[in-house]
Design a protein around this nucleic acid. Structure first.
Lengths: 244, 244
DNA sequence: TTCTCTACGTCAACGCGGTTGGCATAACCT
DNA sequence: AGGTTATGCCAACCGCGTTGACGTAGAGAA
């Protein structure tokens, strides 16, 4: 078998399955996302996907070379959903903050998929568009190229890293998630002040803070530091002028 | 079968395998880590683990309820290794930087285990010790408690987030990993300057920078921002005195 | 309309994965 | 020395991703 996949734009013969479903790459990606959302990341197997589609499992291989190929498509779809409807304000810091929070929450909306997709580089349209946007914001703000690239890298990986971490927490089975949170009450809140003085002194603050995501605060720290470096790099520069 | 696992402290009959190896939970964990380290992420299967141990694969189930149970034991071992031999220098920033890099590299050394371990709150001894240490560094440095807790949260989750993200890249099967890296050369480096001007202008820098982890730079940004907030919070404060 | 070509859904099978029930025996305790 | 049973081993189960072969339905050409 050389290649059983026909590129989407060249597809002509849309032949329904036995159960009357007309397949497409888009339908398969949407169904996979729905499957993952309803029954967890473990639910995404080719056989179950086939059943959910109303088709033979191997039909999926007419649209994707492998499950990894399918995952890349899912990842790119998530990136696309994160950018959908975003508009620049002209303020680089506000823009980056908004994009970071959007990426984070788009992945939170599909925790199990995020878990599988957050760490892949797709190189597809939605991803390149996001990269172009973020790099553009940094370069327009006045960061020299080497620094812009480093900050881009840190910013994106921070967003994806927190997204994956927080998604993993959401993706846990209910009892395990409850147990994980309970550890802060059951274990940390009861540690002896003589062996763990710093935990004991901040137990109340800890149990409250660990319930939320640490991402928004970490994002602000990163933007703080970036802003400070921008002022160092261009000391005589005022607010950047309008470019539109 | 109710339960074929006997708790480690109650074990008495150490019966060698056909190949003369005397099994133990510790030996199995060490062998699993060695397998992952030597032969890549895919090498950790029960069958291969059995072969590496010189025992029947199912013998592993006399020591762990499931592979997940085994992975949790591996995770605990990893936390221990990350802290092993660390010593405070008295400089809060250098200490936090060293701890962050240690966490990151301890997880990088065993990517597949890191993937499953990074998002769990265990509440066990190694974990509480790490929390106590980090909180202690921040509070001793002079951060007010609410800020110390927020920075602790951001610091730890950023470390674990990047660790998981970078570990995931290392844990990919060889072809997928190659594809991920190749995207920067094959796709980003060839984008048209008219549609993606910012990517085109920085393509060389991008492909070079994305080969490395973004964590060290992101860590420095976080520490920069924390240091700035410390100076704002306690402007007249000198270096904190010795407490030991 | 009819003929041809092939895209694509389906079927069956392969090898590998985690996991388990049953069995034999060696290690410990008395 | 004898009884208990922990524990290693074997064989088997089922689900997984993937692939080769097959038949047929759909589209374009005449």
């Amino acid at each position: 078998m050389t290649d059983r996949v026909v590129p989407e734009p060249q597809r002509r013969r849309r032949r329904p399955t036995k159960q009357g479903v007309v397949l497409s790459a888009e339908l398969i990606v949407d169904t996979a996302l729905r499957l993952i959302g309803q029954h967890g990341a473990d639910a995404l197997t080719v056989r179950r996907l086939g059943a959910a589609l109303g088709a033979d499992p191997s039909a999926v291989y007419r649209y994707f070379h492998s499950t990894d190929d399918l995952l890349i498509a899912i990842a790119d779809e998530l990136i696309g959903r994160a950018q959908h409807g975003w508009q620049s304000t002209g303020d680089w810091r506000a823009d980056l903050r908004a994009i970071g929070l959007r990426i984070h929450s788009a992945y939170q909306a599909h925790p199990q998929a995020a878990l599988l997709a957050a760490h892949r580089t797709t190189g597809r349209a939605h991803e390149t568009a996001a990269v172009e946007t973020i790099l553009g914001i940094l370069r327009t703000a006045g960061f020299p190229d080497p620094e812009a690239v480093r900050i881009y890298h840190a910013f994106v990986d921070q967003s994806l890293g927190f997204a994956a971490l927080d998604a993993a927490a959401l993706a846990l089975p209910a009892p395990a998630a409850a147990a994980d949170l309970g550890v802060w009450q059951a274990s940390y809140a009861r540690l002896d002040a003589t062996t763990h003085p710093h935990i004991a002194a901040t137990a109340g603050l800890l149990t409250r803070d660990m319930r939320r995501s640490g991402y928004p605060y970490a994002l602000d720290l990163l933007l703080d530091a970036a802003e400070a470096r921008l002022r160092t790099a261009e000391p005589g520069q005022a607010e950047p002028g309008q470019d539109g």
